[in-house]
Design a binder for these strands. Structure first.
Lengths: 218, 218, 218, 218
DNA sequence: CATGAATGAGGTTTCATTCAT
DNA sequence: GATGAATGAAACCTCATTCAT
């Protein structure tokens, strides 16, 4: 089951290694600038300058400016959404300790926290630009609906059947879990990164909040 | 106490009535187009065309394109954040039934739900453009820190003292409440407005989720 | 002989008195701004603002922006060139003391010095804009050729016949006299007005320079 | 002593050779059009058209329209003012025949006459635009005060000490010499170029005028 | 492969002028 | 007469993209 994930992820990594140095510089520069001022307000000339290459060089590697954006955002989407269930640990937890919802959540939380911590600009670009590019939105929905949602749904049903969860429709539960987690991560890294965070404690509290929020009525 | 809110809000409304018809058309067109494609990708010529005015007319009313954006976003910020505590009802609830945290939350939820329902494009522009315009972000933080946070904090402390709330730091509680509510509203109106929502029920569930999530440990 | 001069000059003065207050404000503002930044870089809106009138008001009095320029420059041309020979004194000197070339020059010098002192911006506009507007150049040449040159020529011939002047062609003498005088006045009021000038002495020296420069070879 | 001049001048010439053909066309067109209608009334689109390049090409070489003006005027300023004393001949005259003021003047006169004859539009632009651009005026004053004035002053003092010159302050003498020469050159090439000039004779007369005008009182 | 000069469409903004009030 | 909102042509300038070197 996890094979196709890993296949996909491996593909991404290989892809990354096939980059020439110039290409890598271009991507790095583009990511920085796109994150800062947004795709539409970034100019290829500024990207070329920051990357230390000629403007023409960008277009040798990416047919258009939009191509460059897609090349940046698509892998992020996959890496941001897929691994939610891809890590051995997450699956292991679910397979081996099927009664421990809390550890399941905690695992996802830390996992994604680390991912955003190390890829903030990429995530920022992805979120910002989805709003303006229908294709990106559709791409994201596709990945979500085909890969994330069904797995999440399965897990929710399992716990609901075991009376470990409140009797809300699965989509509602998924929404609450996700907006709470994403809400924390965005507040932590994008909205108020300058605050003095005790990350461990705050994640603990957030998980507590979700767990109690979804506990079955008594 | 609510007087200064209402003063501010009234000011906004008066301001709105002083618009010439052309100015109103320009604003309407700009809001639509900014929400659709983002500020940076919108052209003043397109705005003028959709508004049915000459391009020059835009610049008679708004010195620059950015001015137009600010003129749109600033009032939204105030109207989006201030009234969280401005409605007579919210205050009344808190003043008269100081033990009913649920009704307090429910009130805010419905209140903001209605606001976004009726002002979706405006809210969308505000959120999208805050990412790219430092001034907007600062403006928002100012309103939030000066007007919203202290009131929220006061309420949280009240309920905590009465042992109605889990013993988390106030900022954590505020974050959880807000991201959960905003998470619902954004999912409802911006991310997946095409789904078939039972809004009443979903808000009820969301409030339930928050209430249980924040209930004191037993 | 002086009657047509005076007629013309009187016409100008009457013309000046027929101005409405608004018109006077417009002219004043236009003169200031034209002198500062040049006709082409001055905007009617700025003129209107400085004059304290509506933009439309300018066009009620002057059909076009260029009209406004012409209305300013034409009288200056006449007042700058004609009076060289118009003053009673100048003529008197020449008629009654036909052997005193120095006093004749001195009279012109002081006369024009005073005029520019009191009308610097106007003179500046005239000189600057002649370069860009063929019509102004032609206008100036017409006045010069028809009114100034013949009189000057007559005077030169008189003194040459009396052996009071070097035997240069009249046009050369006229050029030398004029560029020397204008050179002083422009240096004094436009190029280096900030210097500490002893005007009396400097005019004396300039006249001395011309007198000796034009003295017949011995 | 003359080395720094020549360095500067050589720099200018090298600078000129580094131009691409398109850049040269742009400069040529700009000079023509600026001279004709003035900087403010010239449009970059017209310059591009006359130069036979795309409008954008102008801005690849000159960041702004003003930049283009500066790039044209700055070298003219240097070439117009510096060489007054830079030519080997002028210096030679002064060093080797220190009693011949007339030859010294005559040399400058012919020298600058030839320069303006070959660079009329450039000189015209310089003079016209100094009036409207404070920076240009300051640039000119700097060159004049630092390079031209001191040398001129030195020469004047030399001849005054030898009783070859009238006892006027040096600045007055410099002004008279310069306005007379410039007066001739401008009349010749800019104000009345259409007249039938006998340049040799006229320069001779002008020098005569200056020499006699500045001869010591007897 | 890489460069960067050149392009030209399209962006924002200015401005003289008109006209209903 | 006076106003100032409205106009739209034209101004300056930016930028993604191409292509000869």
């Amino acid at each position: 089951m996890t094979k196709d994930f890993n296949d996909l992820l491996q593909l991404l990594e290989e892809d990354e290694q096939k980059k020439t140095p110039k290409q890598a510089q271009i991507l790095k520069a583009a990511v920085e600038i796109f994150a800062e001022k947004g795709y539409a307000s970034s100019s290829t000339s500024e990207i070329a300058a920051r990357a230390g290459v000629a403007e023409g060089t960008i277009f040798r590697h990416y047919k258009t400016k939009k191509d460059l954006l897609i090349s940046i955002v698509t892998p992020v989407m996959v890496k941001f959404t897929l691994p939610i269930f891809a890590s051995h640990f997450t699956n292991q937890v679910f397979e081996e300790h099927p009664d421990n919802f809390e550890e399941f959540l905690s695992n996802i939380m830390k996992n994604r926290y680390n991912f955003v911590k190390e890829n903030r600009p990429l995530v920022q670009i992805m979120l910002q630009e989805m709003a303006f590019h229908e294709e990106l939105k559709e791409q994201f929905q596709k990945v979500f609906i085909e890969e994330v949602y069904p797995r999440f749904d399965r897990v929710i049903h399992h716990y609901k059947k075991e009376d470990k969860l409140v009797d809300f429709p699965a989509p509602s539960i998924i929404r609450m879990v996700m907006t709470t987690m994403i809400g924390f991560i965005l507040t932590r890294f994008i909205i108020s990164p300058q605050l003095d965070w005790d990350d461990e404690k705050e994640m603990e509290r957030t998980i507590h909040f979700i767990m109690h929020g979804l506990s079955p009525k008594t």
